[in-house]
Structures are given as structure tokens and as C-alpha cells.
Simulated assay, not measured.
Amino acid sequence: MTQNEFVIDGVDVTSLPKISLHDHLDGSLRPATIIELAEAEGIELPVLDAEGLGAWFAEQSNSGSLVEYLKTFDLTCAVMQTREGLTRVARESVIDLAQDGVIYGELRWAPEQHLTQGLTLDQVVEYVQEGIEQGIVDAAAQGQSIQIGQLITAMRHADRGLEIAELAVRHRDNGVVGYDIAGAELGFPASKHLDAFNYLAHEYFPVTIHAGEADGLASIESALFDGRALRLGHGVRLAEDITVESTDENSTIVSLGDLSQWVKDRGITLELSPSSNLQTGAIAAWGDDILDHPFDLLYQLGMTVTVNTDNRLQSGTSLSRELWLVADAFAYGLADLETFQQNAAASAFLPLEDREALADAISEGFLQAVQNSR
């Protein structure tokens, strides 16, 4: 499927202004770039042509297991250990987002995974920011306006949470907008990094946490109450706390547990990633098709849902494609897609005035797209 086939209500989704909240930098590489950087660094690849390498990533990522899915990052991180690799990947990621109509994005990545060739934590953050700024300038030259913030991520199975939190705060005036923990979720709750989250709370620094993807409700609880998360990375397994009492052709009656009621009432954002959630088995309890994803249940219940890519390379996707997929599956129109973007605008780790400006840009862009389609 090509970009111009992502049509909803007569409008190409690619042309709509969009916000991307959950997008991993090391999951956004172009296959051709991996090949070039790997050749320069003497890194062996399983496939030596761009199309074939893209297919290899897709095949490896469709295991139904988050642990197996994460193994593909050994290769992408391997080519991101130098200033050249980091700046190039960041620059191209921003350009690709802008070409997909993204006007604001948050790129998350783990600096501790990019130190094998002697760079320091501060250097890798600076080099990624350098690439981001280059990408913004290049996108502007193509007539595309985009803002990007870094989300600094700590690996939850490691013991560097506080160190990485201090790194994030140290660079809060140099492009870093928030903090995350990621990696193998099961067995590594947010509570293991309590010192980091206490520090971040005292620094008034926003947090999003991967939770409710490879582990269930206890992981989400820890993210909220130990991590003080403002957003949940995925959070799809929150649906385990929702019981369908009865259903017929006209209505469905459900009851919410205390946790899901709390998330709904507090407006805590769910960073849902439909394709990735299928690939990692995050929605296995409900099925193995996009139609089985509890996205619509969460949306209809009034949860603050957003649509995200997670990893564009591994899922062979874009934000426009993910929006089209949920729209096609659940018969959404442009008004629904705009709601998801407004949710994302309100949830961005930006000052209120900047979030209001994003909201206005979303409204104006959707209105213009509708008028142009008539």
C-alpha cells in the first residue's frame, strides 16, 4: 500500500497534521542507511539490499513476543555508536516524520545503549540533538514545519535509572522534554527505579513509562504510583481491568475496575501502537487481528487514546498508516482521527501555550483538508 492510498472520507491521511508521541529513534532507521553505516563500521548484516533488509526486520519482528521483537534493536543500535551514525539517523528520522505530515514528534531512545565506541552520555544526547536540528532545517527547506523533542529512556533491566534521569534533566534546555523506561517489562516494574522517579518529581520533569505491553495491571499500577507517569507507553493491557457485562447488536455494557476508572478519570494518556501491539503479542488475550485490538473499547469508554508507530522500521509503518488501519478497522471518520490528534496535542510534553498552538494547528489543518476534498 502506498501513502496516497491512506484515504479516509476522501482525504489523504498523509496530508493531515499529526502528532507522534511514541516513536523510538532506534526503530526508525531507513534500511539503506543501516547498510551504509554497517559497511563503514564493518558490521555484518543478514541481508545486503535495502528492500530485503526491510523485509528481514518485518519478519523478525512478527514473533508475537516482545523479547524476540527487541532483539532486532541489537542491529540498529550497532550502527548508532558514532557521531556520524547518531546525527544521520536522527536527521533522517525527522525528515521522514515531516514527510508523513507530523508537525510535532517526540523521539525516544536510550543513551546508555550508544557508548560502545567511547562516547559519553552527554555527547550522544548532543549528537542526536544536532541531527534533529539538521532534520528540522532540511524539512523546512522542503516546505514542511516540524518540532521535535527527545525523550531520554533508561533500560528498565539495568541499574542506571537515576543516572539517566539526571542526564535528561541536564539537557532539558537542549531538546530533551521527558523521561521514559523501556525494555523487558515483565519482572522489571517502575518501582525498581524509584530513586529516579523521586528525583524527576522534585525536578518537575515529565514522565512516560512503558507499561501494559508485556505485563499486565500490576505494571501499569507501578508506572502510575511509583513512576508518577503522565502517559502510559502502550498501556493496552489496561483493558484487562474492563469487564464486558453484556452485549447485543445495539449496545455493550461494561464495568471498569478501580485502575481503569482512575486512568479514565485522570485523563492519563494511552500511547497505543496498533501494529506493534499485534507484533509483540500485547493484545494476544483478545486476538491476533487489528479488529481484536481493544483500541475501540478504550476510545468509546472515553479514555485519552492516541495512535502511534512505536517502531517504524520493525512495523514497516508510518503514523498515517497506523491511523488508516484503525479507521479502516473500526469505521472511524476524520472527526475521530482529529480527536486522536487533539489528545496527542494535549498530552505533549510541552508548555501549555505550545500545546494550545498545536491544537489550533490540528484544527486548522483538518478543516483545510476537508475543504480541499470537496
Rank of each mutant, 00 (worst) to 15 (best):
E203G: 01
H157W: 11
D138Q: 10
H171Q: 02
R172K: 15
L217G: 01
S191L: 11
E163P: 10
T208F: 10
A190C: 03
H171R: 03
Q134T: 11
Q150L: 13
T208W: 13
G175C: 07
A139R: 09
D195P: 06
A196I: 14
A182N: 10
E130M: 04
D215K: 06
E213G: 07
A201T: 09
L194V: 04
Y127K: 06
E133N: 10
Q142G: 02
R160K: 04
V177E: 12
V169D: 02
D215G: 03
H193D: 06
G183I: 08
I181L: 01
I209E: 02
M155I: 13
E126Q: 13
S191V: 15
S191Y: 08
L194F: 06
N174F: 13
H171S: 05
Y204A: 13
H210G: 01
G149P: 09
E130T: 02
D195R: 09
A139P: 13
A214C: 05
L186S: 03
Q147T: 07
I181E: 10
A140G: 02
G135Y: 15
G178N: 12
K192C: 00
P206T: 03
H171D: 11
A184D: 14
R156Q: 09
D215E: 05
L200Y: 05
H202C: 03
V125Y: 13
E213F: 12
E185M: 08
Y199N: 00
G187K: 12
E130G: 00
I146W: 05
N174C: 05
E130L: 06
